[in-house]
């Protein structure tokens, strides 16, 4: 496909991203002079040690997490919307987010039920992401097996929704039998959190994320082809089954790893691809993939900056902010454009 989008909007978005990144890092409960922040980020040492720790071990990893989460979920959302030819698809609909939540619920809430297996109730940094990835993978496998049995993409969408409902029901049952303190713990996880990631965890996050994003560049051609539907794609020589499995795998891995490290983050995956389509007014994935990567990171950084409630000691749950941001955007899009595209 042709029509290479002009480079200008990309440049502007990139500058905006840089600016937001700096803004995000410079805001927090402890005021640090901007000069010092630049100094620390560029490797200077002539500053207060506590400031250095705050910037390098807390704010910088958090900003990086925001970028990974926002861009990753947006790519997952774009892939889902094109694959299902449905403008309302997103990482949540395949039930993968719910699967990840289920893994975590089983871990936190189920620890009293299965106390024989899980002796400790304390949540280490590692066991939670693993539980979450396990849950995401479980639902993913079920969806992929089901997807290979049915031919119709709409059926896959509905199967995904059903798996989502199933896991939600299982979480309810688990909650019913759990103690208040555990339910509270689970609730806090479900609020989502971009902080709390150590550099070690972040490196694993970055590695998995990079593989998935590179793979998504590899499916640009089948994605473009799917814009005309599966039959045309097939007649243009695209191997539908293979492309379908790769697309599902990318989405699941991205959603799984993001939910594992940051909790279930709503609306970003649904809203950002639409914003990208409006700004760039194209359906070409060669433009849309880099566009959602940038826009997703930008939107997530904005949400995170808002959630810190600048100049206060409180932090709002990030999931509430993304929904507060996302829901009006989708409503506004529908009213203004009258029509959503894939």
């Amino acid at each position: 496909m042709l029509k290479p989008a002009s480079k200008k909007p990309f440049l502007l978005l990139f500058l905006l991203l840089m600016f937001l990144c700096l803004l995000n890092i410079s805001l927090g409960s402890v005021p640090i002079p901007f000069q010092e922040i630049l100094n620390i980020l560029t490797g200077g040492i002539d500053t207060k040690e506590s400031w250095q720790t705050i910037i390098l071990n807390f704010r910088l990893p958090k900003a990086i997490t925001a970028i990974l989460v926002g861009s990753g979920l947006s790519v997952a959302g774009l892939l889902m919307q094109t694959f299902f030819r449905n403008p309302l698809a997103g990482p949540f609909v395949l039930g993968i987010s719910s699967g990840a939540s289920f893994g975590v619920a089983l871990f936190i809430l189920g620890s009293s039920l299965f106390s024989g297996f899980l002796i400790t109730n304390s949540i280490s940094n590692w066991s939670l992401p693993m539980a979450s990835s396990f849950g995401a993978f479980l639902v993913l496998s079920a969806v992929v097996i089901a997807a290979n049995k049915v031919k119709n993409t709409m059926s896959i969408l509905i199967i995904g929704l059903m798996f989502g409902s199933l896991t939600a029901a299982l979480i309810s049952i688990l909650s019913y039998f759990s103690e208040a303190s555990q339910i509270q713990q689970f609730l806090f996880w479900s609020f989502g959190s971009l902080g709390n990631l150590s550099w070690n965890e972040l490196f694993i996050f970055i590695a998995v994320y990079s593989i998935a994003i590179l793979a998504s560049i590899g499916v640009i051609k089948p994605l473009n082809s799917l814009l005309l539907g599966e039959n045309y794609a097939k007649s243009a020589g695209i191997n539908i089954k293979k492309s379908r499995n790769i697309i599902l795998l990318i989405t699941s891995v991205l959603t799984g790893v993001i939910t594992a490290f940051a909790g279930p983050i709503a609306f970003i995956g649904l809203a950002v691809p639409h914003i990208a389509r409006i700004i760039f007014s194209t359906a070409n994935h060669k433009t849309l993939i880099p566009a959602v990567l940038l826009l997703g990171a930008i939107v997530m950084l904005i949400c995170d900056t808002i959630s810190q409630l600048p100049a206060s000691e409180f932090t709002l749950p990030i999931n509430a902010i993304t929904s507060l941001f996302g829901a009006p955007v989708v409503i506004w899009l529908l009213i203004r454009k009258k029509q959503l595209f894939v």
């Binding site: 496909m1 029509k3 814009l227 005309l228 359906a283 029509q339 894939v342």
Partner: peptide, 13 residues
Amino acid sequence: PESQLTVFELIAL
């Protein structure tokens, strides 16, 4: 499916 493909892009597919 409804998308923002132009005539040229559609034929290019």
